[in-house]
């Protein structure tokens, strides 16, 4: 899992190492460090850190080590890596069908967002663009399978994205 934290450290040399070491010692991987020189207060400086840890348990260990090393944790946020999901469907794109599709994809779980855009045309065969973000790559495969089944049942053509 990827985590983003705001830390406060003593503004003296060698302190940054005390913040980073617990992450690497516990098998984490540091992705980015940003010094917040604008956030100095009471002799303490702000640091924003992004890192990957293998599990919640490891994260708890890192937090415990920080508090023992006088590194203050001000804010913590999980960042989920997302994968794009994208289709253009051609044919019957009635509101009822779109509802079935978006609800079906959402029911697969781990879906962060899903958007639908319709074509503006007078032809009878319309098209719609569906895009979304999912938190698990496997969901893309499941969604592709779901879309193939729906296409067969409802007789529309799917043009799939390229991210899978």
């Amino acid at each position: 899992m990827r985590v983003n934290v705001d830390l406060r450290l003593k503004d003296v040399p060698g302190q940054l190492i005390r913040a980073l070491e617990p992450v690497s010692r516990n098998g984490g991987n540091i992705v980015g460090v940003v010094h917040r020189h604008d956030q100095i207060s009471a002799g303490r400086i702000g640091v924003n850190l992004t890192f990957d840890v293998p599990s919640e348990k490891v994260l708890e260990k890192v937090q415990a080590e920080w508090s023992g090393a006088e590194v203050d944790l001000m804010r913590i946020e999980n960042i989920f890596e997302t994968y794009p999901l994208e289709y253009v469907i051609v044919g019957d794109v009635s509101a009822a069908e779109m509802k079935r599709i978006t609800e079906g994809i959402q029911a697969l779980g781990q879906v962060e967002s899903i958007d639908v855009k319709y074509s503006i045309s007078s032809s009878k065969d319309k098209a719609a663009h569906i895009s979304g973000k999912v938190r698990d790559r496997d969901i893309i495969k499941k969604s592709n399978k779901f879309m193939r089944e729906r296409a067969k049942r409802s007789g529309f053509v799917i043009i799939r994205g390229f991210g899978d």
Binding site: E86, V88, V90, G91, S121, S123, D125, K126, A127, V157
Partner: peptide, 22 residues
């Protein structure tokens, strides 16, 4: 296998709006 039969201009245009091609 799925071919290109049935792909219409609406679909091609929607893809273009996303800076994509079919």
């Amino acid at each position: 296998r799925t071919g290109i039969r049935g792909i219409n201009l609406d679909a091609v245009n929607l893809a273009m709006q996303e800076r994509k091609v079919v």
